[in-house]
Computed example of a mutant assay.
Amino acid sequence: MILTNANIVLSNEVIKGTLTVQKGLIESIDHGHVTLPSAIDCQGGYLTPGMIELHTDNMEKHFTPRPGVAWPGISAFKVHDAQMVTAGITTVFDAISIGDVVQGSERLKNLTRMVDALSETRARKLTRADHLLHLRCEVSHADTLDMFNALLERTPVQLVSVMDHSPGQRQFAKIEKYREYYQGKYKLSDTEMDDFIQRQTASSQRFSHLFRKEICRTCNEQSIPLASHDDATQAHVDESHQYNMVIAEFPTTQEAAKAAHHKGMKVMMGAPNVVRGGSHSGNIAAHQLASDGVLDILSSDYYPASLLDAAFHVALRNDNTYDIPEAISMVSQKPADAVGLMDRGRIQAGCKADLVWSSLTNDHVHIEHVWKDGNRVF
């Protein structure tokens, strides 16, 4: 396959040229335009690496499309897969939560269904993207450690993040935001919400420290990459660094983001945060961290189509120094490197031909086609 007349986004520059694919791998990148009849004319659009998504819970909504509705697993997973590919995401770390702030929630009921669907669709080659497993461990939940150990014996895990969503700290340092989010989500009265806060605080105090320590110890022993979640203070970052965490997921303050970046952890923020212009929880805005030069990775989180949009948003803003190659690397090479995937996430000879052709009109990016291992999947 030959793709020509493209603005090819390399690691440190954009060239107008031609890319050749052979047996699913990038064979060569050359300057200039060819006129071979078999070549695909990219019409001056951008050719970027297939994106690497490290943290998405997009899958959950397809398993429970309405309250009380459990959709068949393989069908649900295939729809999720199609959404990711049409967004230009060719490698997906599906974030599945162990533990939840509410006992008996749909998230817990779907846990094994989602893991089984991921494993089965992958084994049967029913997906267009590569799907890997990211376990999100809610360490304030009583059953989290047992469920974590059981899942490790059941299926391969490629990334683990450790989180604590109890009130008054990290993502919900502002208690009014905690009330607004959970009272609205679970339709709790004021009295029920007061009781809910007390229960979550007590559970965190009882389990969080021990479970965080044990989960991190196991991951370090098994060489599973670790991510912190919602670090807010220097002390949080110091603890995360001590546990050998390589990614700082969604730090909630400028202080924590700068500290994590300084220690060599890759700071990851939500692409919806970029597109919307701020955090829905009232925490630090991603564009502020870009202005500080400490934004390393973007994640689509709950909205797959936000990922490429956000990369171009960052590149086209005039309040930071990120150019197009550096902004695109935040959704491709940097996440790949952070978790040790050296065969993708970059346009380079010998790497996987995971590619996205897009066009940019004013400030809107439109995906034309997507290739996975040299095969067109969108």
Rank of each mutant, 00 (worst) to 15 (best):
M1C: 09
N7Q: 14
L10W: 02
N12L: 05
E13F: 05
T18N: 04
T18F: 07
Q22D: 15
D30A: 15
G45Y: 03
Y46H: 04
L54T: 03
L54W: 03
L54C: 04
P67Y: 01
M84Q: 12
G88V: 02
G88Y: 02
T90V: 05
D94I: 06
L108H: 12
K109W: 00
L111N: 08
R113N: 12
A117D: 02
A117P: 00
R128P: 02
L132T: 09
L133P: 09
R136D: 04
T144H: 08
P156H: 08
V160Y: 01
P167G: 02
K185H: 11
K185M: 13
Y186V: 08
D190T: 04
F196R: 03
S204K: 09
F207M: 02
S208G: 07
R217Y: 00
C219V: 10
L226P: 07
D238K: 15
P251K: 07
P251R: 07
T252Q: 07
Q254A: 15
A256S: 13
A257P: 01
K263R: 15
K266E: 04
K266V: 10
M269V: 01
V275S: 07
G277H: 12
H280N: 14
A286T: 00
H287S: 13
L289T: 06
G293T: 03
G293H: 03
L295T: 02
L295M: 04
D296Q: 05
D301R: 06
A315L: 04
A315R: 06
N320A: 01
N320G: 07
T321M: 11
T321W: 00
Y322L: 11
I328C: 03
I328Q: 04
Q333F: 01
A336Q: 07
D337S: 15
M342L: 15
Q348K: 13
C351D: 12
K352T: 05
D354T: 00
H364V: 14
H366Y: 07
K372Q: 12
D373M: 10
V377Y: 14
